[in-house]
Computed example of a mutant assay.
Amino acid sequence: MTSPARPRPWARVRPVLDAIWAYPRRSPLTVAYVCLLLATHAWVEYGMTADRSAELLRYFSTNLDNLHDHPVSALLGSALFFDGTLTDVTSVGFGGTFITLGLGVCGCLAWAERRWGGLRAAGTFLLGHIGATLLTAVVIAVALRHGWYPPSVRQADDYGISYGAQSVMAAATIGLPRWSRLPWVLFVLAWPFGGGDDWPGPLPEFSTIGHLLAAALGFALLAVGPVARRSRGWRPV
């Protein structure tokens, strides 16, 4: 009796290589966006002086003053940068980059583009980015009125892709095996509390609230999605 042939090492590696090779073709919008984010990150980190970089990011921050003064450029420009690091792998900032850029954009946004198409994937991302930003602005305004946040929050730096990534991560729950959905939901809701920021009052730090609101918007899409698919004849690819 002959023993079954062992699979060659190449047979185990090939599916991974095939997936990497197919990634740009199946998720071109995500690849283009990641390249843009890496380019703007390199430009801000290495192509500008520290003062000029800080001035640029301050202009695109979606704080209350900027949303009142130039809302469109702040909302759109904020999505061109990510707030984190790619080199200091032991820092909290790298952990945030791994979650938002790695899991959120490279992983979940690419999955959404493959399954729903580029427009719906981009819409899910923008819903979190813009919707959560505006809702957070309302929370900040109310908190300032009651003295729950310091006045400096009006000019705080708040830019990046994390709200959009959070919304896509929440919406991508539907694509996971059933046994892993609850742990993933808990992770999506818990990681915004991992920065170690002190609560300035009865509310968490405003960016934590923003991430929770972005997740809520992403989860809400799962509730309305089946209705929209039935009414429009949508089918996953």
Rank of each mutant, 00 (worst) to 15 (best):
P200G: 07
A228Q: 12
G160P: 01
F81S: 05
R58E: 15
M48T: 06
S78Q: 12
V227P: 03
I161Q: 00
L103Q: 02
V92A: 10
G175V: 07
D51Q: 15
A143T: 11
M48G: 08
F125G: 03
S3D: 13
P4K: 03
M48N: 06
A39E: 08
I20L: 13
L75I: 15
D83R: 08
R178F: 10
I140M: 14
W179S: 14
I161E: 01
G131M: 01
G102M: 06
P4C: 06
R120Y: 02
Y159P: 09
R26S: 06
L80W: 09
C108A: 11
V72A: 14
W191C: 12
F94I: 12
T30K: 04
S78A: 10
A141S: 12
H129P: 11
A141C: 05
V168M: 10
N63A: 08
S73P: 13
G95N: 04
A165E: 01
V139C: 02
A228K: 09
A79I: 09
M48W: 07
T85D: 10
P226H: 08
V89M: 11
W191P: 10
W179G: 07
G96T: 00
F94L: 04
W191V: 14
G210Y: 02
S207W: 03
G131N: 13
A110N: 00
V153T: 09
I140V: 13
G77D: 12
I174N: 02
V92W: 04
P202R: 13
F206P: 09
A220G: 15
D157M: 08
W191F: 15
G131F: 05
L80G: 08
V44T: 12
R232T: 13
T2F: 11
